[in-house]
Simulated scan of single mutants.
Amino acid sequence: MFGSLVRGLLLLVFAGAASFPLGARSLLDYVGQCVPFARAASGVEIYGDAWTWWDQANGRYPRGHTPKVGAVLTFARTSRLPLGHVLVISRVVEPRVAMVTHANWSRINGVRGGVEQDVTVFDVSPKGDWTQVKVWYRDSQGLGSSVYPTHGFIYGPRPATELSSAAPDYVGSLIDAYAR
């Protein structure tokens, strides 16, 4: 029993080390691309460009169109996002508003690649199925004006404990979504 526990802990340590640079003390310290971050934060073991995750998940992970904590929202490839984007749901505020934690979206201190925790994503799809979203963008201090097409959610086996802060700003998230 003790041996299997140690092996399990070592697997978790090495899996996390493979996704994050040495010296990162937590998920929130990560600096890099969205894909390794989403993989480590959700437990979804998919590799390759973000836009390919939806098809790769077919038959491997449950997929759907309802946000759940730990689910990965997969963005389609567009001219603005030629590699797509993936983010992880950290809180569901209401059916069309969620908070997410993701990497490499906004510039943080003038640099891309950092992690943002508990920022707003708003479903603006006509059918309320999360196939079109707006995402909070640091430079505008609110939801950006761009609408991004998405494929849907991939439901992972184990969301990280650091996805959400102890006191996320639900009211701010709703204001971001509905006040503009």
Rank of each mutant, 00 (worst) to 15 (best):
V115C: 09
V115I: 12
H102F: 05
S173C: 05
F75Q: 12
S165K: 11
T161P: 09
T74W: 05
V92M: 05
R96C: 12
T161S: 10
I175K: 01
L11W: 15
L83C: 05
A160T: 09
G144C: 00
G114I: 02
T150A: 03
S4R: 13
S79Q: 15
G43R: 07
F37N: 02
Y30A: 05
L87W: 13
Y137S: 02
C34R: 10
E94N: 06
V100E: 14
R7T: 06
W53D: 05
V100S: 12
S173N: 02
S165T: 15
I108T: 06
V135L: 02
S106F: 00
P82N: 11
G172R: 05
N104W: 09
G64Y: 09
L143E: 01
K127N: 10
L83S: 06
G43Y: 10
G152V: 03
L10G: 08
H151E: 05
R91K: 10
Y148L: 00
A177S: 09
G152T: 10
V171S: 04
G152A: 04
L174C: 09
G144M: 00
N58Y: 06
G70K: 02
Q141H: 00
V44M: 05
F2T: 14
S19P: 04
V124N: 08
W130Y: 04
M1D: 12
G3F: 12
S90H: 15
P168V: 08
W53V: 08
V171D: 07
L174D: 04
Q56T: 12
Y61S: 08
F122D: 06
T150Y: 02
F20P: 08
A40C: 07
E162W: 14
T52H: 14
V44K: 11
G43Q: 09
G16S: 15
R39S: 11
G84P: 13
D129V: 02
G84I: 04
W51F: 11
G144N: 01
I89K: 02
W130S: 06
L27K: 11
L81D: 14
S19Y: 04
T74V: 10
S140K: 03
P149M: 00
H151N: 10
T131M: 06
E45G: 08
P95Y: 14
L12K: 09
C34E: 13
R107V: 01
A160F: 11
